[in-house]
Simulated scan of single mutants.
Amino acid sequence: MFAIVRTGGKQYRVAAGDKIVVEKLEGEAGASISLGDVLMAGDGSELKSVEGLLVSAEIVAQGRGEKIIVFKKRRRHNYRRRNGHRQYHTILKITAIGDHKDEGQSKQAKASPEAAPAAAEA
C-alpha cells in the first residue's frame, strides 16, 4: 500500500518501510509521529478513500542539509555579498499506512452520551 502525504509544503509518495527526508518536524530521535495530511492512498492500481487516514512514522534523526552558497553581485558597482545556509531536516521511517483518526475518541463519544443521561437520572 502507498500514500501521498503533504508536509513542509512538499508532497511525498511513501510506503511502509520507506525512509524520507522532510522539512524539520518537532520531536526527538525515536519518537513516533503521525502525518494526517494524506492526499491519496492506494494499493497497486486501486485507489482507496483517504477519509481520516493517517500515516505513522518514526523519527530516525534530526539533521542539517548541505551548505548552499548564496552569492549576489551587481556588475560595475563593486557589490558582492556571499552568504551560506544549511537547512534543518528530519529523517522519517514510515512504519504504517492506514491508521484512522479518532477511532478511540469516536468510541468514547458514542459511549459518553449514553452514560450522561444515566448519570443525570440518578
Rank of each mutant, 00 (worst) to 15 (best):
S34R: 14
S34P: 12
S34A: 13
L35C: 00
L35D: 01
L35E: 01
G36Q: 09
D37E: 09
V38S: 00
V38R: 01
V38Q: 06
L39E: 02
M40T: 13
M40I: 12
M40Q: 12
A41K: 06
G42A: 07
D43F: 10
G44N: 01
G44P: 01
S45L: 14
S45T: 15
L47K: 03
S49A: 10
S49F: 08
S49W: 10
V50G: 02
V50A: 08
V50C: 09
E51G: 06
G52I: 08
G52S: 02
G52R: 01
L53M: 06
L54T: 11
V55L: 05
V55I: 05
S56M: 08
A57N: 11
E58N: 14
E58F: 04
E58L: 10
E58P: 04
I59M: 06
I59P: 02
V60C: 01
Q62L: 06
Q62E: 03
G63K: 03
G63H: 00
G63R: 03
R64F: 11
R64H: 06
E66L: 14
K67M: 06
K67T: 12
K67A: 07
I68N: 11
I69D: 12
I69E: 12
I69V: 11
V70S: 04
F71T: 01
F71E: 09
K72H: 10
R75Y: 14
R75C: 03
R76C: 09
H77A: 15
H77P: 12
H77R: 15
H77E: 14
H77M: 15
N78T: 12
N78R: 14
N78V: 10
Y79G: 12
R80Y: 07
R81V: 12
R81S: 13
R82V: 15
N83W: 09
N83D: 15
N83Q: 14
G84C: 07
H85E: 08
H85N: 08
R86P: 08
R86S: 08
Q87K: 15
Y88G: 06
Y88P: 13
Y88D: 14
H89A: 00
H89K: 07
H89Y: 09
H89P: 01
T90H: 02
T90C: 00
T90S: 08
I91Q: 05
L92G: 01
L92I: 01
K93I: 04
K93Y: 02
I94K: 05
I94Y: 00
I94H: 03
T95Y: 10
T95Q: 04
T95E: 09
T95H: 04
A96N: 00
A96G: 02
A96M: 00
I97H: 01
G98D: 09
